[in-house]
Amino acid sequence: MSPATVAIHASDLIKRFPDVLAVDRLSVEVKAGEIFGLVGPDGAGKTTALRMLAGVLMPDLGSAMIAGFDIVRDAEAAKAVISYMPQRFGLYEDLTVDENIRFYADIFGVSRTERVQRASRLLDAANLTQFGHRLAGKLSGGMKQKLGLVCALVHRPRVILLDEPTNGVDPVSRRDFWQILYSLLGEGVAILMSTAYLDEAERCHRIALLHQGRILFSDTPSELKKHFRGAIVAVVSPSPRRVQAFLANAEGVLNVVLVGDGVHLVVDDAERRIPELRRHMVSAALPFDSIEQVVPTIEDLFVAATSGSHRGMDR
């Protein structure tokens, strides 16, 4: 990667709070035109990492360059090319949609004509055009997040940092949201977003799995799946908790997690284990509808990666 195309370059960022190491030697590179997903459960350190990259939180150690600006020594210069959308809604609820857009456009010195042009295009894409005069506080959750994105994009940022932007957003708004994000990539924008939703992570070009402040793996979603050594076996059952308890220590089973309608097992060899496990469950009179191998989702990868000694991954 040539330095010119690397929009975000973080190396060994460390942030420690009094009772937790929130971010532990985090290194990330995001190229211009790329969407990078920081994936992890609550408390993984996503917000802390994004705050440091946005220049609003000082790292204890390590460094990061955003569009060529050092976020420690030159944070204010970096802020001119960053758009940051915090996890908590950061716009003014007592200002209307238009007033919020105007505020952020003025703060970034966007000319009137450009503001009007960009805002109308973005509002249109976000399906917010008819809500221009509505107070931001009176918008639904999904509309608020889309307005946040519109405000973030009303100037021409080179780096966009989004902290769980689609959390609590309805599916339709979420689709609008992703369409706007993809449309930006042509402008050479680099997007770093965090999410706790693994299905959403699959829409990113590359992702990093963050756990207890550390990046466990970082790659494209499909590469990650390739590196997955074991197999995922889905058991559909009316009493998943009993199945989970029963199979947790079975031979060849590396991990068991509850999913919507049953459990997912990480096993070393699906061909061999499926008949075995089926026999076990039948003899124990455990009710189940089916047991079959499925394509691993990132969620499965995450579970495999975070289960104890990383037994399920080959690196």
């Binding site: 705050r51 946005a54 220049g55 609003v56 204010e76 210069a77 802020k79 001119a80 960053i82 758009s83 940051y84 959308m85 915090p86 908590r88 809604f89 950061g90 716009l91 003014y92 609820e93 952020y104 703060i107 970034f108």
Partner: peptide
């Protein structure tokens, strides 16, 4: 309190 400070701080405003 309203959570607007974090976003304001992320802009180049002095």
């Amino acid at each position: 309190e309203r959570g607007t400070m974090e976003q304001l701080m992320s802009t180049p405003v002095t």
